[in-house]
């Protein structure tokens, strides 16, 4: 085991989120393809995204992964192309984390609110 710091965590999360989102892409190709069997089949399957509690949590995780991956992706681009970027990589990691959490607030409200009995329009 190696005790890396912010840079190592940012990379581990970036890879996990990248692979996670890619995995969902495969699932998503299958679920959209179901429309080929007609709207009944498609609806019967895709409604579990909303109706099963566990799927709401999984969607929340998916959005968290996409958000983190994009914000940290911008951090990596800054390190790659801005000559001074490397000096701020740690701050930019915390920035990416903060933006991710901030953007997850409304996601949490709409996606997980109903799970916890909130009246969400």
């Amino acid at each position: 085991m190696y005790r890396g710091r912010e840079g190592m965590w940012s990379w581990i999360f970036h890879r996990m989120s990248g692979i996670g989102v890619l995995l969902f892409l495969f699932i998503h190709i299958v679920d959209t393809a179901l429309i080929g069997w007609g709207p009944e089949v498609y609806n019967a399957v895709t409604r579990i995204y909303h109706e099963w509690t566990i799927f709401r949590f999984l969607q929340f995780l998916l959005i968290a992964a996409v958000l983190y991956h994009s914000f940290n992706g911008v951090r990596i681009l800054m390190i790659d192309f801005w000559p001074k970027g490397y000096q701020y990589q740690r701050q930019m990691f915390y920035g990416a984390m903060a933006l991710t959490l901030l953007a997850l607030l409304p996601t949490g409200y709409f996606l997980l609110g109903p799970v916890f009995g909130l009246q969400v329009r």
Partner: peptide, 16 residues
């Protein structure tokens, strides 16, 4: 760009 190298360098070289 994991930055473990920069943290490890005993000469303080900005390895990354």
């Amino acid at each position: 760009t994991v930055f473990n190298c920069t943290d490890a360098c005993p000469r303080g070289i900005q390895v990354t």
